[in-house]
Structure formats: structure tokens, C-alpha cells
Design a protein around this nucleic acid. Structure first.
Lengths: 243, 243
DNA sequence: TTTAATTTGACAATATAATGACATGTTTAG
DNA sequence: CTAAACATGTCATTATATTGTCAAATTAAA
């Protein structure tokens, strides 16, 4: 396994999904290759050493499982399976065929990225002093706000603040790239599932709720969520705290 | 953490203060190291495992908070902050950056010593988990709950609580990674056999039973099992940081 | 001041969790 | 060996909480 730029093979018959995954994974520094059908996938997977294979079961129901099972006979490459909701039968078959993880479609790109990181972390037990550890993937600390991702806990002024799932996801996403401005479209794409096409003002409502809850405990923390007029929102780190 | 002779890092730019603290703390059996500025402190703190860090905020106002916050991203070492009288702004920031206690200068050496003892007592109470976990000791100790893995015995309020195998496995699994949230899928995968593909709500039922049994003996212990809405469950460690 | 964008509150539609009752296995005691 | 006690998983029901939409009120920019 290369130290950075892990190679990932994305197998899906929908061009849209392949493009979406490529977009998000390349942003994380992975190197992506694509395959459209099971045959090509299997051939590539055997010929090259990928660090991970993302496999959509809906290629054709039998096909996906079979690719996974036949690959397993020859290689130990981790496999992450994408599958439709409630597709229980395939879930059983998938695990039996040796899949390492499962993601139900529609998925949120962030979730897929984080699961991929988990798989790769697991599969390279030797490299456990990973970048993530040192860069505090788990704990994000700001002057007025602490986010512990494992615990999904947000603390302001030493007091815990309770958020709903979407609220938390939104806040955590903003906090993961402090000072960076995101448009509402971007937020919908990243924090919501990829097939959410509702009202764009939904973002505003959620921002409001996050601010509200933070504000009860710490106005300073609430003030970090900044509106960039005409553009979107960001989580701003105060730099002039010390007078 | 060594049983006696805990290692303490004293960070202060005044030589006089460092000497004073060393004098009193060595008399109590602590082993002292010193750092004169934030950079050195951070470097040492990350490189070595101290049991406590005493940090003077006046190093330079920005520096002290930053050292604390940046340290917190990587380590859980307790921090006691020294600061000038009435420096309210910094006090709030200090706690938010993850300080465990806070002493106003000028301080009485005896007070500092007793606060240090309190911090170390507290931190070893919650840190039992990781320590014992990592060193193969089978005892997981929480304020209201003790789990002895060899004996598969759970004690709350000094009273034994009887669990069925699955219930015990579930509780023990959660207790092995306190504060970490697990989805139902993860729990099924890790606590149940890998080939369990039944109803996901089975987890809920078992959680209910564990809570029920704990609750009869100790509501506090039962309350540790927290539902994270939309995500799953975790076993939460109470943090009574504020005196 | 005008215009466009944002904030906000209320509400309906969804989604998720807690619980109780039951069926089916599995162990234990006699 | 058998019956009772226990453990486990399922499922339907009830109880809660979240999420998205929309339109009116407010605010910012030019």
C-alpha cells in the first residue's frame, strides 16, 4: 500500500455515481480508477493491486456478489459494497462473499469517505500512527467550542450542547474546514445525501437551529457561524481574542 | 501512569515560580520537569507522557491557551493553569481549551499541591479504562460501574448485577470504548456473530434489558447508556470537571 | 430608498426509538 | 429424560424527535 494516494477502484454502472465518488475521493488524495461492469472490474482487480474496491451490487444482482466472491479467491483487497436500501438478501450474500463494509444508497459522500478511511486504517494495522491520529480527526478544538467526533459530543464553555443528527453533521462539517466558506449547494451536497434536491433554504433553517442551541450556552460559539452574504456560511475562527 | 512519583511538567517563564513549584512538588514525591516557553512545552508534552502539566498563561497570553488547545488535540494529559488574578477572559478560554483546573496567582503552594492531588485522583479514576484496557488488566472502572471481564462480573453501587451472555457482551463492548458512539450495525457486527443478519432492532431490545437491570440497582449506571438519536448508542462517562 | 438575501417561526410530514408481548430455542435441575 | 426456567430474537404499537417547506419579517448592500 502506498503511503498516500491510495488506489481505489470504483465499480458502478451509473456514470453519475462514479463521477460523484471520484470527485470526493480525489479531494481526499486517493487515486481513482473506474470500471463499468463486473467483468472489467474483476480483470482490473486481479491485474492491479488496489487498496480498496468500491462495488455497487446493482450492476446486476448476481454479478456484484460474484465479482466479490471470485476476487476473494485470489486477493485480499478490501471491498466496500454499495447497495440499495432494504436489500437484505444481498447484504447476507455480500458479507458471505467477503465484503468489508456496506453502505446503503443513497449515501452521503462524507459517510463513504469516512468509512473508507476506517477500512484502510484497519487494513494497514502497521501504519497505525496515521495522519488522522495526529491531526485530531476525532477532536476539534476551538477557543469556545470543542467537537469530539467519536462521541458526537459538542461542548461550549465546558457544557455539552445537544444537536440532532443533521445539525451535528452540519456543524461538524463546517468545523472540519474552519474559515472556509461553503455555498448552500455545497453544504447540501456534502452534508445531505447525494440525492437530496429539496429547497435550498433548508440549509438556512438548520444553520438557525445550530446557532440557537449554541447561543443558549455560548454566544461566542454561536458567533463563529458566520453568514457570508450572497455566498453562504462558514465557521470562523476568532483571531483577535486577546486584547 | 506510575503508581507514585507522577511526572509533572511545569511551564512558566519565571524561574522563581518554577523553582518554587519544584520545591513543593518534589517534597510530595512528584518528579518534575520544566519548560520555559510554549514551544518547548508542547514538544515535550507530546513526546513524553506526563501525568500533569502546570501551565502559566502569562508565558504570553496567546501562547498559553494555544499550547493547551493544541495539546488537547493530541493528548489527554491533565492541565492545571496558572493565571493572574481577575483574568476572567482567559479563565473561560482556558477551560474551553481543555484545562482541568485553574489557580490564580499569587497562589499558596499548599493549595496548588492539594489541587494537583485532586486532579490526579480524578484523572486516574476516569483513565482506569484506557490504562487497564491497554495493559490487559481486566477491570474497567467507572464512577458508578465496575466490569471485571475475567469473571464477567458487573458491579454497580457495590452490588452485583446479573446479565445474560449477550447483555454482558453488549455492555462490555460499549464499556471498552467509553464515549464512542456505535451504530446498531456496528454493534451487530462486533457483539453478535459475524453471521447475524436479523432485525436491527434486536439491539434496542438488548439495550433495554441492560438498562432495566442496571436501573434496578443504580439509575446513575443505567443513565450511562445513552441513545444518540439517528446514530446508535454509547456508554457515556460522566465528567464532573467543575468543582 | 430599493432590492435582494437572510432570518425566523409555525407546521406538516417523516423518521426513529422505546416498549411489551410473544414465539422459539437453549440450558438447567431434578 | 423431562419440565421448568431462561435467553434470545421478532414484531407491532406507541411515544418521541427530527426534518423540510414556506411565507412573513428582518436585515444588508448599493
Amino acid at each position: 500500500m502506498s503511503e498516500f494516494g491510495n488506489r481505489i477502484l470504483v465499480v458502478d454502472d451509473e456514470e453519475r455515481i462514479r463521477r460523484l465518488l471520484r470527485l470526493y475521493l480525489e479531494k481526499e488524495g486517493y487515486s481513482i480508477e473506474e470500471a463499468e461492469d463486473g467483468g472489467t472490474a474483476l480483470q482490473k482487480a486481479i491485474q492491479y493491486d488496489y487498496d480498496l474496491i468500491i462495488l455497487d451490487l446493482l450492476l446486476s444482482r448476481i454479478d456484484g456478489i460474484e465479482v466479490c466472491a471470485r476476487l476473494r479467491q485470489q486477493k485480499a483487497t478490501p471491498v466496500l459494497i454499495l447497495t440499495a436500501k432494504g436489500d437484505e438478501v444481498n447484504r447476507v450474500q455480500g458479507f458471505e462473499a467477503g465484503a468489508d463494509d456496506y453502505v446503503v444508497k443513497p449515501f452521503s459522500p462524507r459517510e463513504v469517505v469516512s468509512r473508507i478511511k476506517a477500512i484502510l486504517r484497519r487494513s494497514s494495522a502497521t501504519a497505525f500512527v496515521s495522519k488522522d491520529f495526529f491531526f485530531g480527526n476525532n477532536k476539534i478544538v476551538f477557543p469556545h467550542l470543542i467537537i469530539e467526533h467519536d462521541a458526537r459530543r459538542v461542548t461550549a464553555r465546558g457544557q455539552e450542547v445537544n444537536f440532532t443528527p443533521k445539525e451535528y453533521d452540519l456543524l461538524h462539517f463546517l468545523a472540519s474546514s474552519p474559515d472556509k466558506v461553503f455555498s448552500r449547494e455545497e453544504l447540501l451536497r456534502d452534508v445531505w445525501k447525494y440525492d437530496f434536491f429539496g429547497d435550498i433554504r433548508t440549509v438556512d433553517t438548520h444553520i438557525k437551529r445550530v446557532r440557537e442551541k449554541l447561543n443558549r450556552i455560548s454566544p461566542e460559539a454561536a458567533a463563529m457561524i458566520t453568514t457570508v452574504w450572497g455566498i453562504g456560511y462558514k465557521l470562523e475562527v476568532q483571531k483577535d481574542l486577546f486584547i
